[in-house]
Write a protein that binds this DNA or RNA. Structure first.
Length: 739
DNA sequence: ATAGGGTTAG
């Protein structure tokens, strides 16, 4: 930050410029003419011509004329603040109007802090004191940076300057205190105003809505009516936002009627807020009626409708609005992309992103990149993810915390841990989310020790871990079987770091203990936990029972799980697994019958593999792929090879009882991960690793097969299943068979 | 000699 003794805007000043004498009639007329022409400027080129002319004639060095030119440079629609700022530094002795104009221009710029810098300079350099026009701008800047101490200091200056009864200043202060989150002070200022005007009420109503107190806003609206102050369009924007926050559709409808009845001017903004209210309160029908009636529509109107349909899962309607939009700007693309990405449709998200690239009508921004990277993470689409990384670099986009986190997550989930680490170590911003993402990356790749080391380093860098950090750290312990470390971290969470263990942490801990065979301790932990055990905690116990073949405990865990989440097909699958593993085929078929009767379906296994930027999906038993015949032929060839190397199919991983031995084998060979591996061997070059993403946990037989292929075919296979990564290389897996 | 406050999506 600049200090008070050094100039804040540090361009050189012209030494003692000549001040024109405006004595004779001839030059005065020219001067008058110049000034009146300034107002007719319509573009930046025009303005620059004036500037040059005024510099040459010396008119620029007259404070009043400089103030006229400067106002045009800093406030007009075509202005460039950068240019205005340079001009300001060449004005020899800015008058009060010029200082105020400069403060005003920066107050509503993207960097309002500069407004405060100028204000401080003014206090030091100008002979004038700030006046009643200065303060509303400075206060707006303080609101812009949401700094309560700054707001308080300026409020103090207002009082000292005897301006504390100026209505404009007081209204600004209400808004400012509310922006700083100090609702009490905002309300005190509001109460102190004797002659409140509609802006006073609006500022307070909007303040309450944005400060998360919609009820207080509505209460104020009633009082406003009682005091006979007529609300205007801005009031109604606040009131409708309150309805949106409260999810109160009935009252929202009433407000819309009220607006009609009282003939409140229906501005575009107000219509848009009405739309938003209907959309967020779940009435797409009302929204659509209004939208179709609106004569003026802007980006907000279109984007709100697209977002509403997309979030509600009606992607057809969302797309039809999107394609009807005259010129969709980036926000419209973003709501579509992010709705797909957040609704488990990452492929569709990437398709829209691809369309955006081709259309070239809008430029991806940070939101676009974050959603798209997340879609790549979900799919394991490393080619596209890598392409976005290159795009970010080429565009010179600076990596902030969000983008850094998203890139680490993408590379980790796409199986390239080294790239994720590269991003992490070269990152300039390393906040708690960045550290946590990297710990998660190491965890899912089974590098538990490295994850713990990183956690230690994180403390060295003075970044405080949060709940997510601990979830990731504990999951690292669970994937690597670090029981003692897991216990220690779990116990230290609250006592040392002040993070209260939540559902996820208990679940991880049950997983750590259960997996390692400490089943009683895991049960004990569930029994003693201070919060209600979640379905996932019982699920973790059930998973542990599968590994250790404990049927009794499994039945208890499964019962508890299904009580909380009756439709959980995963639970049935795990329990059938355990029955199958222990040879209880009667129980297996009983369970299957029950699933059939209650309409519970097992999620079909699905594996995908990316080849040349295209993601190929295989469902268990799939023969829809164009290369299906070749894939099955390849698979037969592989398995024959493996058998002669000693491979014996392990049918205990099958879910249903199959009588004939060769039928068992056939059923195993239909598994989607085997199909994806065979396809990868056909289509990918010999040095390229095969990267597979599976929606479920990898099957034990497929795990053995992948290990053997990695040795016999000298090919690395990187498989991401529902829980973690398996790197198969030279006949061994990175999970060391602990999964 | 010029002027000021409150408003909506991701």
């Amino acid at each position: 930050m600049a200090t008070l003794s050094s100039p804040l805007l540090s361009l050189p000043r012209s030494p003692n410029p000549p001040v024109p004498t405006v004595k004779n009639d001839h030059s005065f007329a020219r001067y008058q003419q110049t000034l009146s022409l300034i107002d007719q400027c319509t573009n930046l080129k025009h303005l620059k011509q004036f500037h040059a002319q005024m510099l040459r004639s010396g008119v620029f060095f007259h404070p009043y004329s400089a103030s006229k030119l400067f106002a045009m440079a800093s406030l007009s629609s075509f202005s460039s603040l950068d240019y205005a700022r340079k001009m300001f530094d060449y004005i020899p002795q800015p008058n009060l109007y010029t200082w105020n104009t400069c403060i005003r221009a920066f107050a509503s710029s993207p960097e309002p802090i500069h407004s405060l810098f100028i204000f401080i300079r003014m206090l030091y350099e100008s002979l004038d004191f700030p006046n009643k026009f200065t303060f509303p701008f400075v206060i707006k800047a303080a609101a812009g940076i949401s700094s309560l101490p700054v707001a308080q200091a300026i409020h103090g200056m207002v009082i000292k300057a005897s301006l504390s009864s100026d209505l404009f200043i007081l209204n600004s202060l209400i808004h400012c205190y509310a922006s700083c989150g100090d609702m009490d002070s905002a309300y005190l200022v509001f109460l102190k105003i004797d002659e409140k005007d509609v802006v006073s009420w609006n500022s307070m109503i909007t303040g309450f809505v944005q400060g998360g107190c919609p009820d207080k806003a509505l209460e104020l609206f009633q009082r406003m009516e009682a005091e006979n102050v007529s609300p205007n369009d801005v009031t109604m924007v606040g009131i409708l936002s309150a309805c949106t926050k409260k999810l109160d559709l009935e009252f929202g409808r009433w407000v819309c009627q009220y607006i009609k009845r009282n003939k409140i001017h229906l501005t575009l903004t107000l219509s848009n807020v009405m739309l938003d209210m209907y959309v967020k309160n779940g009435s797409m029908e009302d929204a659509r009626k209004l939208f179709d009636k609106m004569e003026d529509k802007d980006d907000f109107s279109w984007t709100t409708m697209i977002d509403g349909y997309a979030k509600g899962g009606d992607f057809d309607a969302a797309r039809s609005i999107f394609y009807a939009m005259p010129r969709p700007e980036i926000a419209a693309w973003n709501v579509l992309i992010s709705a797909y990405e957040q609704n488990g449709k990452p492929k569709e998200a990437l398709a829209i992103f691809h369309e955006l690239q081709l259309s070239k009508t809008a430029k991806p921004d940070e939101v676009t990149l974050l959603s798209t990277l997340s879609a790549c993470s979900q799919l394991g689409a490393i080619d596209i993810g890598g392409w976005i990384h290159v795009y970010i670099k080429k565009q010179g986009i600076k990596l902030n915390g969000h983008l850094t986190t998203a890139l680490i997550d993408m590379y980790s989930k796409c199986g390239d841990l080294e790239k994720a680490l590269d991003i992490f170590y070269s990152a300039e911003v390393r906040d708690v989310f960045v550290w946590s993402a990297m710990i998660a990356g190491l965890a899912m790749h089974g590098r538990g020790r490295a994850a713990i080391d990183l956690f230690v380093k994180m403390q060295g860098s003075k970044v405080m871990p949060n709940a997510v950090t601990f979830t990731n750290l504990l999951s690292a312990c669970s994937h690597t079987g670090l029981v003692d470390e897991g216990r220690t971290f779990f116990n230290q969470m609250e006592s040392v770091y002040g993070v209260v263990p939540g559902t996820k942490h208990y679940t991880c801990m049950v997983d750590i203990l259960g997996r390692a065979g400490h089943l009683e301790e895991a049960v004990e932990l569930i029994r003693k936990m201070p919060i209600v055990p979640s379905a996932s905690a019982w699920g973790a116990l059930l998973g542990a029972c599968r590994i250790h073949g404990n049927v009794e405990l499994a039945e208890i865990a499964c019962g508890n799980l299904l009580e909380i989440d009756p439709g959980n097909h995963g639970a049935y699958v795990l329990l059938s697994n355990i029955y199958a593993k222990t040879g209880k085929w009667d129980s297996v078929s009983g369970l299957r019958r029950h699933m059939k009767v209650s309409g519970i379906k097992k999620e079909p296994g699905c594996s995908s593999v990316e080849v040349d930027g295209i993601v190929h999906e295989f469902i268990v038993g799939d023969n829809s792929h164009p290369l299906s015949r070749e894939i099955y032929a390849k698979l037969d060839e592989i398995l024959a090879g493996l058998k002669s190397a000693g491979y014996v199919p392990n049918a205990s991983h099958l879910l249903q009882f199959v009588e004939e031995e060769d039928m068992k084998e056939k059923a195993l060979n239909l598994h989607s991960e085997k199909l994806a591996i065979a396809f990868g061997l056909i289509r990918l070059g010999p040095s390229q690793p095969i990267r597979i993403v599976k929606n479920l946990r990898v099957c034990g037989d497929c795990h053995s097969v992948a290990k053997l292929i990695s040795k016999l075919y000298d090919r690395d296979i990187i498989l991401r299943d529902r829980y973690r990564f398996h790197h198969f290389s030279g006949g061994i897996c990175s999970c060391k068979d602990y999964w």
